[in-house]
Nucleic acid binder design. Sequence first.
RNA 1: GGGCCUGAUCAA
Length: 245
Amino acid sequence: VYVYNALLMKLGLEKDFVAIWKLLDDMQSNECAATNTTFAIIIQLYGKAHLLEECWQTLEKAETFGVKPDSHMYTALLRVLFEAGKVKKAKQLLGRMMQINSELDIRMWSTFIHGLCKNKRLQDAEIFFKQMLDQECVPNAYIYNSLILGFLDVNDPDRALIFYNMMQERGCKPDVYTYNALVRIYCCLDRFVEAYALFSNMEYAGCEPNQVTYNTLLSGLLEKGKIAEADEWFSGMQKGRQVDP
RNA sequence: GGGCCUGAUCAA
């Protein structure tokens, strides 16, 4: 099965969907059953090819192969819908999921909330965030990070920081992604002192800054014309290989 | 009892 899945994605890169379905028939005639992951991959591939209808059909086809569509597959579908800007459809799908399976898993929530953020529907994102809390679902860093960045993208850094505080109050540990987002926020706000301070926070939290962290800071500095500062940081980090924009 | 194969978040 593992080998087959690997083959599938290779065919997917060539967008050869006919060959993919042939391969599935092949799998079945051997005693090798396709899994839910197999179909999740196919949905993802159709999504990249912008073939929405085929994504839905894949759900039905999965059943003919004896695979019941599960959260794994629905998550893949949600992502495709959001990337195509089909917010309405995605909401409907989530609604259906909640009726069938009252408890949604955390990945599905994060995919959903992230999708809303990317589509700049932050008011909705907040509503669903609360709904998520009402169910006994504990938000993780993925969720908070998406919201923080989402609010930053719509020029509401204050709200972004509110979620950062909430994250800490609720005992969710910030990760590198969180810190990278914070660096960006402080750069946008011209509060570079606080941006610098984050690096010591990170060290204290045992969180290693990565290439993205430095890149974010450098871009932020350059954007505000602080070339001398950027230069200083740049020479201070010779280990990593980051590119100067 | 164990595994969990490409389902979720960041800069350029």
